[in-house]
Amino acid sequence: MDTRQDELRRDLDATLQARKELGKEYEDALVDSFMKRLDARLDARVDRSAAGRMDDYEPSSRDRDRGRPRTPGRAGNRLAVASLALGIPLTAIAGTPEGGGFAGLLVCWAGIVGVNFAAALGNRRDGRGRRPRSDWD
């Protein structure tokens, strides 16, 4: 198991132990604290991934003026995976009565489906290898 997963497991264990010691009164605060740490880790991971992508960015001669990366489609796949990974906590939040209940779940998953549909559509368009008919395309 990698060290980041070990750290996350330790944080979750510590949160669960604190909940046992403090009781249910502090459950919301503990969950919020854990989610903030998890969000910070996800943000850092996305930032590292984006920085790595920018280092690998080499536009082809045809796409240089439009700023498209040389290998299309991979960013869309990562976006789809990230949206599904974030779907778990979003589902938990949206499924609560305060989060909208069933209607909240529908809105949450409609957004996730929309993101994945847009990513798939973007991959399909980029993967065709279309050549512009003119400089205006």
Rank of each mutant, 00 (worst) to 15 (best):
P89G: 04
A80F: 03
R62T: 14
A94R: 02
R41M: 07
G87A: 11
D32G: 10
D56L: 09
L106W: 07
R128M: 08
D137V: 02
I88L: 02
T71W: 07
A85S: 11
R74K: 06
L90A: 10
L90G: 14
I112D: 06
L16W: 00
G129W: 03
A80V: 04
M35N: 13
M1G: 12
I112M: 00
D56S: 11
R4N: 05
N77G: 03
D63R: 06
P59D: 06
A14H: 13
R64H: 07
D126I: 02
V31T: 14
N116C: 05
Q5W: 06
K20L: 13
D47A: 13
L121E: 15
V46N: 02
M35Y: 11
D65V: 14
D11S: 06
A92K: 02
R48F: 04
R4Q: 15
R131F: 03
G127S: 15
G95L: 05
A29F: 11
T96W: 00
G99H: 14
R41I: 00
A120I: 06
G127L: 14
R130S: 08
N123A: 15
S134T: 15
L22N: 00
M1I: 00
A14N: 06
G95S: 11
A103H: 05
E25T: 13
P97W: 08
V81I: 05
I88G: 07
W109Q: 14
A92R: 13
A118S: 13
A110P: 03
S60F: 01
A18C: 10
R45G: 12
V81C: 05
D56P: 02
P97H: 07
G127W: 13
D135W: 05
L86I: 14
G73C: 04
A94P: 14
D13K: 07
D55C: 01
M35W: 12
N116P: 04
G73F: 03
L8Q: 01
T3I: 10
R78D: 01
E58P: 02
P59M: 12
D28S: 14
